[in-house]
Design a protein around this nucleic acid. Sequence first.
RNA 1: GGCCCCAUCGUCCAGUGGUUAGGACACAGGGUUUUCGACCCUGCAACAGGAGUUCGAUUCUCCUUGGGGCUACCA
Length: 493
Amino acid sequence: MVETNVNINRNNSEVRVRFAPSPTGDLHVGGVRTALFNYLYARHTGGKFLLRIEDTDRKRSTPEAVKVILDGLAWMGLEPDEEPVFQSARFDRHIEAANKLLEDGHAYRCFCTQEEIEQRRELAGDKIYMYDRHCLNLTQEEIERKLVTGQEFAVRLRIPQGDIVFNDLVHGEISVSGGEIDDFILLRRNGTPTYMLAVVVDDLDMRITHIIRGDDHLSNTPKQILIYRALGKQILEFAHVPLILGPDRKRLSKRHGATSIIEYRDFGYLQETMINFLGLLGWSPGDDRDIISRQELLDLFDIKGIQSKSAVFDESRARWLNGQYLGRSEFDDVAAELDKFAREASESGSLLEMPDKQQIKAAWNLLRTRVHFLKDLFDEYRYMFRDPDVFDPKGVRKHFMRDSVAERLASLADDFASLEPLTSDTAEQVIRTRAEEWKLSAGKLIHPVRLACSGATGGAGLFETLEVLGKNSVVRRLKHAVELIHSETFDIS
RNA sequence: GGCCCCAUCGUCCAGUGGUUAGGACACAGGGUUUUCGACCCUGCAACAGGAGUUCGAUUCUCCUUGGGGCUACCA
């Protein structure tokens, strides 16, 4: 028999969902996607998106990690609709629930020490060890005696007979036979609640309606259902989202490189990119679109569209997507961020000096469709802001190591110097006129000039590039290239 | 090991009881006679395997294989 989910019976109830990370490290992209799905579902249905910090493990939880979560969500624009709930502040409620279960006979005190359990587990050898209910069989007198002598105890749930069947919104009907679950711990010997108890009590208290969370909790769900039952409550709706995998199909983790959302931000990913990318990783509106806005996501999101298989995080696809958004970004949209990367580049010495805003804007407008990350403008295209210090060896061989190249570049330098002003048009005129005069194809001049001015063999249109570089830079770079060619100092190995 | 989940191009995402199985990333080739990691075009490339149901299965069922998850007094 499939358990009745609470929402079926509840009318005019607003949707309440929560993202419930534990503050033990980074906020990684898998978590962010879970948060995003929760957020989208809440927004789509006009419900509430809540945040709960699962810090019942006092040893592993840190305030720094809490801040990381808050910062990450804020950057993604996924702020909760109500104040975050800290699980550690709700211990009294958890203990209250445990006591109620004790009173009702759904739970019992276990005086076994961890060492004893460990011994029995080793004794079991290959066989799976499940708690042997040693303490369930204690007589009332034995229990009293232990309590009087102040023996510490944990509280275990008394698992009832019977299979557990429930409906998952993404996986469908899930069933587990009752014998698979042992009497797990609700309250530790030190009196703190375990995750299993706390999650149920808090979801109930927070009036959560839908639990949208990672697939890794699927196997725990039957245990939680047992707690709901013991508490006399109806279960909630469950939607277990498959995990995000690394390229090796293992659960995404640090060894796959960047996993923290903050790392992606600092690397230069746009918020829109991450929303789009994560929104379409494991979910789709049913068509084959690749680009989707936050608003469209809000309008279209539903749990039905969640994929039941796990997805690999494809870095190159994310990179491409970021390039798509960058290509569509106006300077003003990214000016502040560009400024930040420019500052970093100049402080690290790779830019020599901080470029002014007009320079950055001109370079941006010229190159925005070609960059994948904002910082590309200051490393791959740093020649826009400083004279090139390295020259592409293949380009040198092809465009510099030829007869008369130096002489021609020298003449062109003079031509450009006399230009007033040097614009894309006037520069082109000079090149084409000279090409004709020297009986050369324009390319024979264009390539060496590009190499001299940028050190590279590719890039935006040359004439536009020259205009943005400005007359002084162009002339200086050409002359410098002439010297280099004459001195044959190129390293073309 | 036990239990649970999953299975369409290398990757992401569509799709239908009958389709030339579609789009995108990546990759390869060509074009743009100003280049290029930018743009345009083309190509490459998948229904894991085996039974069953059916007139017909990629689609429904089962098994196998493979992958993932859980199996704590972690969450």
